[in-house]
Design a protein around this nucleic acid. Structure first.
Lengths: 139, 139
DNA sequence: CTGCATCCGAATTGATACTG
DNA sequence: CAGTATCAATTCGGATGCAG
C-alpha cells in the first residue's frame, strides 16, 4: 500500500518498523509477486500469468516499488525482443521466510476465523455477504 | 485489505492463507488497534486517543471488522453512559506475537531499505519524494 | 460515551490502446 | 516482450450530524 500513511506512530514514537513492513508487504499483490520470484528469476509475463488477476499496470507499479525498496533486482537483457528478469534480494528472501510465521498462523486458525465470521454474520440477521464486508484495504 | 480480493491464488490452489492474513492485518490501523488492545481491555475513546490520526468512522469500521474476524471481543456494559470494552482474543495475541518476526526483520534491514530507496531515487535524477513514491505524482 | 449514516473529495485500480 | 499513457470505475477515508 503505498505510503499515504503519514502517521505511523502507535507502536513507537519513532518511525514504527512494523508499520513499515506492513506497508511494504500489504497490498493485494506484493506477496504473490515475491513468492513467484522466489522460485528463481522470473520474467514480466510469467508474473503476469502467475499472479492471477493482476493488471499489467499494477504489476509494473508493484515491481517498481519492490525494486525501489531493495526487495527485487531487475536485470535487463539487451536482446530482441527485450528480456527482463526479476530476482529476490537477500533481505526479500529473509522476509519471505519470516512471512511463513504468518502463513502458519493463518493456517492454524483458518477455521476459527471462518467460524467467527459466520457467527457474527448470523447474529445480525441474514446480513453478511460471506465475504469480507466492510473492508478497507490496506493496507 | 479487505475483500475486494476475489482472487487470492498465487501461493496455492486453495485459498491462500497468507493473503488472508495480510488482508486482515494490512491497512493503516489494524496493527495499531491490536497492539493497543493488547495492553488489556480498552474503551472506544482510549483507542481513539491512542491510535493517533484515526477518525471515528475508521475506528468503528475496523473494530467491527476485527470483531467479525474473531480477533477482538466486544463487551458492552449496560451503564449510563454506555461503556464498551475491547479485548484481544487468543488468536489475536498469537498473531501479534507472530508479527514480531516482521518487526525484527524491519528493524534489521531498515537501513538497507532506506539505502536502496535513496539509490533508486538518485539513479533517476531528482525523482523520489523520500516517501513511498510508487506514485510519481504528476508534474 | 458509542457509533451508525451521509456527503464528498482523494487515492487506488482496472481496462485498454500504443510504443520501442 | 516489456512497459507507458490515458480514461473510467471503485474504494477509501475524513468531516460532520444525529441517535441510543
Amino acid at each position: 500500500m503505498s505510503q499515504r500513511h503519514i502517521d505511523v506512530s502507535v507502536l513507537a514514537v519513532r518511525a514504527c518498523p512494523v508499520a513499515e513492513v506492513i506497508d511494504h508487504v500489504s497490498g493485494r499483490w506484493t506477496v504473490g509477486i515475491l513468492t513467484t520470484a522466489a522460485q528463481g528469476p522470473v520474467r514480466f509475463v510469467e508474473l503476469e500469468r502467475t499472479v492471477r488477476g493482476i493488471s499489467r499496470r499494477m504489476l509494473t507499479l508493484k515491481l517498481r516499488q519492490l525494486e525501489r525498496d531493495g526487495l527485487l533486482t531487475r536485470t535487463v537483457f539487451p536482446t530482441v525482443p527485450p528480456r527482463v528478469e526479476y530476482t529476490l534480494t537477500e533481505i526479500a528472501e529473509e522476509l519471505l521466510e519470516t512471512l511463513q510465521g504468518l502463513t502458519a498462523w493463518a493456517t492454524r486458525h483458518r477455521g476459527t476465523v471462518a467460524a467467527a465470521r459466520a457467527a457474527y454474520d448470523r447474529a445480525r440477521n441474514a446480513g453478511g455477504n460471506g465475504d469480507d464486508a466492510l473492508v478497507p484495504q490496506a493496507t
